[in-house]
Amino acid sequence: MSQLVPAIGFGLITASILAIAAVGFTLQFSVTNILNLAYGDVMTASAFAAYIANHAGVDIWLSLLMAALFGAVFSMLLNRFVYFQFVRRGTRLFGMIIVTIAMSLIIQNVLLAVFRPTFFSYEVSASASYTFAGMILTGSQLAIMGIAVVAMVSVHLLSTRTRLGKAMRATATNPGLARSCGVATDRVIDVAWLLSGALCGIAGVVLVLNTATFSEVTGANFLVPIIAAAVLGGIGQPYGAMLGAVTIGLASEVAASVINPSYKDVVAFAILIVVLLVRPQGILSEVASGKEVAA
C-alpha cells in the first residue's frame, strides 16, 4: 500500500496533462466536426517551438506561453490550408480522419528531418520538492496542476458565460441553425481552432516537462490516452473530457504502481471498454443528437 499514495500523486499529474489535452481535442471535434488525429503531432511541434525559445534563453514558462500561441496559430492554419480544403470539396468524417492521419505522418517526419532522431529536454531551473500527505511533487509538477486548473476554469467560464462560448456550443450542436441566428460560423470555427490549438500547445509542453525528454513521436504516443479520456467522457463534452482525464490518469498510474508499469495503457483501455459497454455514448454525452455526422 505504501506505493499507492505517491501513485495517486503521479495520477493527478497525468490527469492534469490529459485534461488539458483532452479538453482541447474534444472542443476541436465538437465545434469543427473534424477528428484531428494529428493533434498529438501538433503537441510535439509546439513542444519543439518551446524548445527553440527555451534554448535561446527564454524562461520555460514564457516558452510555454509561446508554445500555446504556436499551437493556436498552427492549428488554425492547418485547418484553413489543409483540412478545410477537403471539407469544402465534400470530404466527410471518415475521409477526414485519413487526411488527419496523413498530416500526422507529415508533421512527424518534418520534425524528424529538422531536429534529427534524438531526445531533447528543456532547461528548467531545479526547484524544490514538496510533500503533501505522502505525495512528493516537484515545483514543475505543482505548476502543471495549477495550469490545468486555470485552463479548465477558463474553458468553463468561456463556454458558459460569454457570447462567444455560447456561439461555439451552438455551432457545435447545430451549425445551420447557428448561422440562421446570425452567427458567423466560419469565424467561430476559426476561434475554436485557435483555442483548442492553444490547449494543444500547452499540453505538449507540460507533457514534456513531466517526462523530461522528448522526440518527434512523444505527442503521437500520448494521443491514445487523450482519445480514451475524450471518448470515456463522451466525445464533444469538455466536462466529460475532464472527468475522463481524471479517471484514466489516476487509474493508469495506480495500476502502474500496484500491478506493473507496463500495464498502464492496458488498464486505461480496460476501463474505457467497460464504461463504453455500459454507456456507449460516454459518461456525459448528449452531443451529436442533432448533428450531421455522416461518413
Partner: peptide, 17 residues
C-alpha cells in the same frame, strides 16, 4: 432548436445579434 443548450441559452442565441 439547439439540443445541448438550455431554453434560456436557446433564446439568447436567437438574440445573438
Amino acid at each position: 432548436v439547439f439540443d445541448t443548450l438550455t431554453v434560456a441559452d436557446n433564446l439568447a442565441m436567437g438574440g445573438y445579434l
